[in-house]
Nucleic acid binder design. Structure first.
Length: 445
RNA sequence: GUGGUUUUAGCUCAGUUGGUUAGAGCGCCUGAUUGUGGUUCAGGAGGUCGCCGGUUCGAGCCCGGUAUUCCACCCCA
């Protein structure tokens, strides 16, 4: 939970709408209130007016007489929310609260400061596949240095993580300064957000629609013409960056953005980084408004889902909380979406690494004590063992082992107890052999 | 936030113009096999048809409300 004021204004207009606001203790604004009859509603609101002078200026009866029922309800809802919403809100991401934390603890932190963090965050959005109201983010950030080496490190982290997960991804990147340069170069710097939003839709609606929307926005034909380089970039990232550099050559900030990315690539090159998974995308914008430099986005291959990671550099975020001139850069893994991807691509192992290796049978009152003693010995020897919990038919116990993918079953009945041996069945081959306890431990270890 | 869509057995889904006892596959249980899983065969259990109300002699099916699922837009993890 954060103060509402900590979160508002950090994520853009859309972000502000998606912040989960929290009601004051004891308030209830559920739909039931707004479905009441006129009489009930008016008497309810009279009580509210008594409680709060904030909505006293409203003459409810007047509005009711002159407006449609729906608009009255809208007006009432707005005023109700003014009364009911507290100064608290649920975390929207981990970056802004982290910036607040850094400012609060500035005296105890040695910069550059690195940290990782896993926690749930919330969006007041309509949920659908891959879009959740509550989901986990895994964030890694470093604040207190403008060094572009950190950008390179985050590329390495992305690449290493998805390599280990066995997932094929594309790490897309861009730089806000490049976008600034582009809007400057086409003489539309006063419409930065609008232009960038349209360009960002490129892969979704296509070049023609993008040009159309830019024209409607008021971008000059020569400006639009200049932009076409963006849509027809050829070659590797190095070539693309050179081409963009020419496009934004008239913009000081634009050139700086390109040079920053070139520097990052040079670090990666020095570290023998595999460039095949990364892709410079000058149309990549990202919604969060606090980014000022590099921006990242990771897309999974073979699964239709939004981006599974995001990130970028923010020069001024701590400044908003009273600590200026501290640059930071960080990335965020969308843990739930990554889970969805792994699940859909069947990348989770069939069995858990720490699942039981052997199931010891349970035949009855005397046998289960012998079995429990064996389980204890096996565990003491470092073998992951389990005993069937109740006396049951042997077939049932084998079936259980089969379904749990437990590779061995140790059968202990009257015969085995009398001879002080264990009858071990290999569930894959079906072969069954008798061992002493010591031999069994040696066999399973 | 806007526009759609889904909801019937544990799971995935059929269910005709409203008509007797709501079905299938898979799963589950029992037995064939009294101490031996996967395969096969035989049998069985399991449903307030999301919820509330209405129309009708009669509603899983029609109407109203509500919840919910998923999708598109928007936006993003």
């Amino acid at each position: 939970m954060e103060n509402l004021s900590t979160l508002t204004g950090k994520y853009g207009d859309e972000g502000d709408k998606l912040i989960f606001k929290v009601l004051n203790s004891g308030e209830y604004l559920g739909g039931k209130i707004f479905n009441k009859t006129k009489e009930n509603l008016l008497s309810f609101l009279d009580n509210q007016i008594e409680k709060s002078k904030k909505i006293a200026p409203l003459s409810l009866q007047d509005i009711w007489d002159n407006e449609t029922e729906k608009s009255v309800l809208e007006v009432l809802k707005m005023h109700m929310q003014e009364v009911g919403i507290s100064e608290k809100a649920l975390r929207y991401d981990l970056t802004v609260p982290f910036a607040r934390y850094v400012v609060m603890n500035r005296n105890d932190i040695t910069f550059p400061f690195k940290r990782y963090q896993v926690q749930p965050v919330w969006r007041a959005d309509r949920p659908q596949k891959g879009r959740y109201r509550e989901f986990y983010q895994f964030d890694a950030d470093v604040v207190g240095s403008p060094s572009l080496v950190y950008e390179a490190e985050f590329f390495q982290i992305f690449a290493e993580v998805f390599k280990r997960l066995g997932t094929s991804v594309t790490i897309k990147y861009n730089n806000r300064k490049v976008l600034n340069g582009i809007t400057e170069a086409i003489g539309a710097q006063d419409k930065f957000v609008e232009v960038v939003t349209i360009i960002d839709k490129l892969d979704k609606i296509g070049v023609e629609k993008v040009n159309e929307e830019l024209a409607v926005l008021g971008v000059t034909p020569s400006g639009i013409d200049k932009l076409q380089v963006l849509f027809t970039l050829q070659g590797g990232d190095k070539e693309k960056l050179e081409a963009i550099k020419t496009t934004v050559s008239s913009s000081e900030i634009g050139v700086k953005g390109v040079e920053e990315l070139q520097a990052v690539l040079s670090y990666l090159e020095a570290a023998n980084f595999d460039f095949s998974t990364i892709e410079f995308d000058p149309s990549l914008a990202r919604g969060l408004s606090y980014y000022t430099g590099a921006i990242f986005e990771v897309k999974a291959h073979g699964v239709q889902i939004g981006s599974i990671c995001g990130g970028g550099r923010y020069d001024d975020l701590t400044g908003l909380f009273g600590l200026p001139n501290v640059s930071g850069v960080g990335i965020s893994f969308g843990v739930d979406r990554i889970y969805d991807v792994l699940n859909e691509l069947n990348l989770f192992p069939e069995t858990m690494a720490d699942a039981a290796k052997v199931l010891v049978t349970n035949f009855g009152v005397d046998e289960e004590k012998f079995s429990f003693n064996l389980v204890t010995k096996l565990r003491a020897a470092g073998i992951n063992a389990d005993m069937y919990p109740t006396q049951a038919k042997l077939g049932k116990q084998f079936e259980y082992a089969d379904k749990k993918k437990i590779p061995f079953v140790a059968v202990i009945g009257a015969d085995e107890m009398a001879n002080n041996v264990v009858n071990l069945k290999d569930m894959v081959s079906g072969v069954q052999e008798k061992y002493t306890v010591e031999e069994l431990i040696g066999k399973l270890k």
